[in-house]
Computed example of a mutant assay.
Amino acid sequence: MDLLSAMRVFVRVVELRSFTQAADDQGVSSSAVSKQVAMLEQHFKARLLHRTTRSLNVTDIGEAIYRQCKVVLEEVAGAENLVAEFQGEPRGLLRISSNMTFGQLVLSRALPEFMARYPDIRLEVTLDDRMPDMVREGYDLMIRIKGSQLPDSSLVARKLCDIPMFICATPQYLADQGVPDSVQALQGHNCLIFVHAENAHQWQLGAPGEAPQVATVSGDLRANNSVVVREALLAHRGIANLASFIIAPHVARGELVPVFPHAEPERLAAYAFYPNRESVTLKVSRFVDFFAGWLNEHLPQSLPPADKGAV
């Protein structure tokens, strides 16, 4: 029996409370997971789990074994990382969680270059707008777009880049409904809301050296995905406040225009979160350094000029 492999499987079963989810997580079949747990129970000569068709519960001794397995696996991972440090090359599996749209439109473009640079690192990427429990769900790194209020937790946060937000609409919508002359005038317009944004209903603009103006907005569309908001925007349904990386190609083609082109946009930021600064692995530090540099080179902080030939 490969005791370490059985420990890894058992730990994921306990953390996910599911043989099926643990199988998906480890890239094996459910029967393989059941076999690994059974072998571990045979090794310890104790029942570690109570499993029924509706629930999975950890026995008292199973809970104690789970905690010891976590310690052993962390020590093994630490030894592997130490070897990698001495060899100077990061290796192993890097599990990343990212915002959905940011992951689709930005992170996905950076990954092939990173993989080519570090061929001994394997990537597992999950796109999800919720905030996961990094330790329980086994992520090495989490990338999220946040405002000034960071999660109150033990996680280490490193800012990767600014994310400017632009209030925008189609030229047709503004021709039909009029151009608002202030942030407060947005209250008379149909504002399309991305609900996961920290500034979802409180849009603000400012000028250098001045306090920002804030307006509470509403409209007939609220969505948990910014691409859904963008598509309604392109259909002339209203005004939206979206990140530059979501709208930049459409601004360049003249399909969207900033509503307040001379105002200072609100800025959020992309952050990398990881559990512990002291034990950060080489693969995590290399990825964070790489991605921060990649974003600085590829993610512009202003909107592109419209193509003068665009219609």
Rank of each mutant, 00 (worst) to 15 (best):
D2K: 03
L3P: 02
F10A: 11
F10R: 06
E15I: 00
F19S: 06
A22C: 05
D24A: 13
Q26T: 00
S30F: 04
S30K: 13
V33I: 10
S34D: 05
A46G: 00
T52V: 01
T53Y: 03
S55V: 03
S55H: 07
S55P: 01
L56G: 05
D60N: 01
A64E: 10
Y66F: 13
L73F: 07
E80L: 14
E80P: 02
Q87N: 12
I96Y: 03
I96M: 07
N99T: 13
M100F: 12
F114E: 06
Y118H: 15
L127H: 12
D128G: 02
D128L: 08
D128Y: 13
M131E: 14
R144D: 03
K146D: 02
P151I: 10
P151H: 04
S154T: 11
L155N: 08
L155D: 14
K159G: 10
C161L: 06
P164Q: 08
C168I: 12
P171C: 13
Y173G: 05
A175E: 13
D176T: 09
G178S: 11
D181R: 13
A185L: 10
G188E: 14
C191N: 13
C191H: 04
Q204H: 12
A207M: 15
E210R: 14
Q213S: 14
V217A: 07
G219W: 03
N225P: 02
S226G: 04
V227Y: 05
V227G: 01
A235E: 08
H236K: 00
H236Q: 10
H236W: 01
I239E: 01
A240G: 11
L242R: 04
F245D: 08
I246Q: 11
A248F: 01
E255H: 07
V257L: 07
L268A: 12
A269S: 15
A272L: 09
S279K: 11
F287V: 00
A292C: 04
P300F: 04
S302L: 04
L303Q: 06
P304N: 08
P305M: 00
A306I: 06
